[in-house]
Amino acid sequence: MDRLLPVPAALDDAAADALAAQYAYPAGLTAPYVRVNFVSSVDGAVTVDGRSGGLGSAADRRVFGVLRELCDVVLVGAGTARAEDYRGARKPGRGRDTPPPIAVVTGSAGVNPKSRLLTDTAVPPIVLTLRTAPATRLEALADAGAEVVPLDRLTPDALLAELGRRGLYRVLCEGGPTLHGQLHAADAVDELCLTLSPLLAGGDSGRIAHGPAGATPRPMTLVHALHEDGTLLLRYARAAGR
């Protein structure tokens, strides 16, 4: 893997520490810091045949693993978790004895108690849902081992406040596009890690963010650009002073 920015150089990621240093969160966090991670084809598709896996590469998978090791919690919408057949994280994070929990956002508590999120995990998932969700679903998820958290609303401020209350400051959002769009509209995205896969996907796949019209564009700064076998791995952060 080669680093194109800030200084062209070979990046020896055989030692995982080298790659982890490229993606380190800011030190001394006292509130949730939201990093969003997506993979896209060069023509903007976020899925192939309904899943993002068709866009992946060895480089993207390595970075995906590092991002999970570095975070305190993985935040994901229930639709994405279902489409991608999510399982729980199983590899301990850096500086942690346990993997980061998967926090699933679903207003209707629409998570299958028999899904891999609950049956193939080392830590219980956190289900962030509404108090108005069907009681039978809440009970079924709790009985299956999920940590069910009913909230009054699932707006970005409410979600991040709950994660912050738990001390889960290093947030890794893995989508989907609707959750990303809501976070952007609330100006809650601190970082975007975007992998550009060297594919023309075509089709009717959506983009990486869908949100309400009128959201204010957020200036971002390119922090680094990595390259391997035609794949670009880009990391953007909030522009200074913005």
Rank of each mutant, 00 (worst) to 15 (best):
P6A: 11
G214Q: 07
D85Q: 15
A21G: 07
D60R: 07
G88C: 05
S57E: 01
G110S: 15
L29R: 04
L67P: 12
A188T: 01
V104H: 07
A144Q: 02
T106Q: 06
Y33C: 11
G95W: 09
A133N: 11
R94S: 14
A10K: 08
V171F: 10
E174C: 08
S41G: 11
P99T: 10
T216K: 12
Y25R: 09
R35I: 08
P100I: 05
G175D: 03
E228N: 04
V76Q: 02
L138P: 00
V123C: 01
D97M: 15
V39C: 06
T98F: 07
S57I: 10
H224W: 05
T195K: 00
P198E: 14
Y86K: 10
D13C: 14
D157A: 15
L128T: 08
A109Y: 06
A122K: 15
A240T: 06
A9W: 00
D60S: 12
E191T: 12
T221W: 04
H210G: 04
A83V: 07
A239Y: 15
A31I: 04
A45W: 09
D190Q: 10
D12C: 01
D60A: 06
R207L: 07
C173T: 01
L172Q: 11
P124I: 07
G95H: 04
P219V: 10
G54F: 08
S115C: 13
T216L: 14
V105Q: 00
A186V: 10
G206L: 00
L117D: 03
T216Y: 07
Y23E: 02
D17C: 12
P8S: 02
R131I: 00
A21R: 15
R68K: 15
H210C: 06
Q182V: 09
A225D: 03
V127K: 04
L130K: 13
A209S: 11
L183Q: 03
L159F: 00
L233E: 07
S52K: 13
V189R: 05
A103C: 02
L199C: 10
D17Q: 12
L232M: 09
V105F: 01
R62E: 08
D12S: 08
Y169Q: 13
L151C: 02
V74S: 08
A14G: 13
G77H: 03
P125K: 07
A89V: 11
D152H: 13
A83Q: 12
L196I: 12
R68M: 07
G145T: 05
L154V: 05
R82Q: 04
N37L: 05
R242K: 15
S40V: 07
G214K: 13
H180R: 13
V148C: 06
S115H: 04
D229P: 08
D143S: 04
A146C: 09
A81H: 04
L192V: 14
S205R: 11
G107I: 11
Y33F: 15
D204N: 14
G230D: 06
G211L: 12
G93F: 10
V123Y: 00
